[in-house]
């Protein structure tokens, strides 16, 4: 069995020279991550993989973007919907940095509060949440104090 696996041709994808590889994306979240990064508008090389075998999460998604470093806001958004994702920084085809996405103590503006009576949904107020747990992510609105879990997140 193991030998067969080995002999099977491996899926080959172009390596990127400089940029970011986002690995171990929760499979279903792959295209959401692509949305967060606005990859539809990206002009550099972009590779999006899905249903890739992964011991860690069964099947995973993977995204490579040439010449791009993620902003803290983008990393926070990814941490909300794909908390197991890892970021690999690529320089000259080599991985020069690797880290897990991680939520800060609080996140601002990136998520909408699910509570329709929350002041942030009534008036033009930037949302703010305290992170009460990071995996699985759980947030508490700094205004109405409503707690939200990963299924509730609506990104702004």
């Amino acid at each position: 069995m193991a030998a067969e696996e080995k002999d099977r041709p491996q899926l080959s994808v172009t390596a990127i020279r400089n940029g970011t590889v986002i690995d171990h994306i929760r499979n279903e979240a792959t295209f959401k991550v692509a949305d967060i990064l606005r990859l539809d508008r990206e002009e550099e090389v972009v590779l999006v993989g899905m249903n890739l075998p992964s011991g860690k999460v069964g099947r995973k998604g993977l995204i490579k973007v040439e010449s791009r470093e993620l902003t803290p806001d983008e990393v926070n958004k990814i941490a909300l919907i794909a908390p197991d994702a890892t970021l690999n920084i690529i320089k000259d085809y080599a991985v020069v940095g690797k880290r897990h996405v991680e939520l800060p103590d609080s996140v601002e503006e990136i998520v909408r509060c699910i509570n329709p009576d929350c002041v942030t949904n009534k008036q033009d107020v930037p949302s703010r949440f305290d992170v009460i747990r990071s995996t699985p992510p759980s947030l508490r609105c700094a205004y109405c104090e409503r707690t939200m879990r990963s299924g509730d997140f609506v990104l702004r």
Binding site: D117, C118, V119, K122, V125, A142, Y143, C144, E145, R146
Partner: peptide, 22 residues
Amino acid sequence: WEGAARLAAQIAGVPVINAGDG
């Protein structure tokens, strides 16, 4: 509105005591 007092406290310039927000 829930969270109204928290918002008010950020902009009132004087202390706000929440007497009930939704």
